[in-house]
Computed example of a mutant assay.
Amino acid sequence: MSGTLYGIGLGPGDPELMTLKAHRLITAAQVIAYPAPDTGPSFARSIAAEFIPQNVREIPIVVPMRVDRFPAQQIYDKAALEIAQVLEGGTDVVVLCEGDPFFYGSFMYLFERLSGRFVCEVVPGVTSLTACAAQLQRPLTSRTDVLTVIPGPLSDEDIRCRIEDAQAVAIMKVGRHLPRLKALLEELGLLEQAGYVERASLPEQKVSRLADLDCETAPYFSMILIYKGDEAWTLPPSFSS
């Protein structure tokens, strides 16, 4: 019998936001895999660190953190091969994924390579989207409002079109695009309605009105939330980081 591949959503960063099921599978794991940068620690592993058993076999999936494109397909091909060898031997593999595995999660690339050959189970996690809304203290959307999730690297024209057709907007992966996004939202008359959250749920989190944010860049784990629907939802008058 082959082992089972588990894709475990860990939530946005606070270990207390992990599900009970994620905790159970991690504490019982014999083999865990997780994405890791080529320099520095793995964020996914750091979330689950206190629950990882001693003597567990670890498979880091090293993904270079670069602005330019890198051969990601080769990286996931290699990781899938190593994980497949473990599964073929009858041992389960727990793959850690910050946030939710199927919401911009790295696990989806392993799933598409391995789910046709092995039993796979996906354990959902608290997404950055809902975590940021909670920290911003403003609901995301309601009733028949349309919520649109936009990657920050898209062009201004693409972002503009998607914002115009939505009542609620989340712009993810802000990073170096922060000045351009602020300028676009000001042009659209939405800057005052926009909230900003970075590193949600972590001790170093930052919550602010986007208009009050005085910096030229943002971390990868940052998000802009906008509401322009019919509800009378406004941003809180002040935030504490």
Rank of each mutant, 00 (worst) to 15 (best):
Q30R: 15
M108S: 13
A168N: 04
L96M: 03
R160I: 00
D158K: 14
R143Q: 15
L140H: 03
I8C: 13
E216V: 12
F103V: 12
E16Y: 14
T148R: 12
R162I: 08
I226N: 02
F239V: 00
P151C: 11
V86W: 07
S155W: 12
A232D: 08
G152C: 10
L87F: 08
A200C: 14
G195Y: 07
N55H: 11
E198I: 08
A80L: 11
D14C: 12
H177I: 00
A49C: 14
F111L: 15
R66W: 10
E186L: 07
D212M: 10
I75E: 01
L114N: 01
S115W: 02
T234C: 05
T217I: 10
R117G: 13
L185D: 01
G7Y: 03
Q137W: 11
C132V: 06
Y220P: 12
S46T: 09
D212H: 14
G175Q: 06
V146D: 12
I47C: 10
Q137E: 13
S106D: 12
Q30C: 15
K228M: 10
G125Y: 02
D230R: 12
L210P: 01
P15I: 12
L10H: 04
L188G: 00
T127H: 04
P219D: 07
T141G: 06
E186T: 09
A166W: 00
S115Q: 04
V86Y: 10
S46G: 15
P64C: 08
F111K: 09
E204W: 13
S155R: 10
S106A: 14
P15R: 12
R66F: 06
P179M: 04
L110N: 03
A232Q: 14
S128Q: 02
A194W: 05
D92S: 10
E121P: 09
Q85D: 09
P71A: 07
P41G: 08
I32G: 04
F43D: 10
A194Q: 05
F103G: 07
L81I: 08
S241T: 13
A36F: 05
E50T: 12
L225D: 02
D14S: 08
A131M: 03
A84R: 04
V126R: 03
A183N: 06
T27S: 15
Y196I: 01
A200S: 10
Q85G: 14
S155N: 06
K173Q: 05
M108F: 13
A22N: 00
R24Y: 02
E82I: 15
L129D: 01
P219R: 09
H23N: 10
C215G: 10
F43N: 13
I163W: 00
F111E: 08
R24E: 02
C120K: 09
S42W: 05
L213P: 02
E192S: 08
G99T: 02
